[in-house]
């Protein structure tokens, strides 16, 4: 499971202020904690700063990379911010995200080609958000094919099936799971990731739905998620699910996690 730590995002409380004030200690501490908890990528998103986003992104990438060894996930819908983030980044970053919207696809692809990076592909196009499993599969395949044609390696593509609230459409969970399975079946090396928490929007006890959904999706092929790695319960659940799905030889990961107390949740 490729865990993308989501905590450095200026839409979270207190973060915008920390980034605006260039609070090095606060940001570095949050980055280190996520790495220690098992994050494979540290997401950096400062989109709420709008006009100052580009400079803030450069600062974030430099500040975080000073203290962690894992690569970053450069997170912005703004190609300029992605470009500056990638310039500053050392090693192979993950870009979040590209979509099949014509203009955004072209602009983001240019930047991807210039820098050797992996990319999250959101299954939406100029017709909007996906509706049902078919839409997700169709746009997902188009993105994979177009990216591969442009020279992006299959294993560098992370498809995000776009999670919508189960509270407004009770079929959406099944649609997402079916899409995850179909895309995984056809493209073995492509990764599937998602921002989980949308699934539980508008419902009580959201964490329970988020955690349950991640295990259901893992059983269908999800192998990455944008989550809070400091939530020990979701991390323990992911560890256990990996073992049960046969992705943990000799159950070594599970046993190691248990011995270090990570499963005492």
């Amino acid at each position: 499971m490729i865990v993308i730590g989501e905590l450095i995002n200026t839409s979270r409380e207190g973060l915008e202020e920390a980034v605006k004030n260039r609070d090095v200690e606060f940001i570095q501490d949050l980055a280190k904690k996520q790495e220690e908890a098992g994050a494979d990528y540290i997401d950096v998103n400062c989109g709420t700063l709008i006009k100052e986003e580009v400079e803030a992104m450069e600062w974030l990438v430099n500040t975080v990379q000073e203290v962690v060894d894992v690569p970053l996930c450069i997170d912005s819908p703004n190609p300029k911010a992605l470009e500056v983030g990638l310039e500053a980044h050392e090693g192979k970053a993950l870009v979040n995200s590209i979509t099949a919207e014509e203009e955004r696809f072209a602009e983001t692809l240019e930047i991807l080609k210039e820098h050797d990076a992996r990319v999250v592909a959101l299954v939406m196009d100029d017709d909007g958000m996906p509706n049902g499993a078919e839409d997700r599969i169709r746009v997902g395949k188009k993105l994979i094919e177009d990216l591969m044609k442009a020279g992006i390696a299959e294993g560098d593509i992370f498809v995000d099936p776009i999670i919508q609230p189960i509270g407004t459409d009770q079929a959406v969970g099944e649609h997402i799971l079916d899409a995850v399975e179909e895309i995984t079946r056809e493209y073995e090396e492509v990764h599937i990731t998602c921002g989980l928490s949308n699934i539980s929007h508008g419902l009580p006890q959201r964490q329970l739905l988020n955690r349950t959904f991640v295990t259901l999706a893992m059983s269908r092929g999800l192998d990455s998620a944008i989550i809070d790695p400091l939530d020990p319960k979701i991390m323990a659940l992911v560890t256990a699910a990996e073992t049960l799905l046969g992705n943990d030889q000799y159950c070594a990961g599970y046993i190691k996690a248990a011995k270090s107390g990570k499963l005492d949740v």
Binding site: P165, G167, T168, H201, G202, L203, P204
Partner: peptide, 10 residues
């Protein structure tokens, strides 16, 4: 007040 939820509102 979080006493009712989205599907209930719908």
């Amino acid at each position: 007040k979080n006493e009712m939820f989205v599907p209930e509102v719908l």
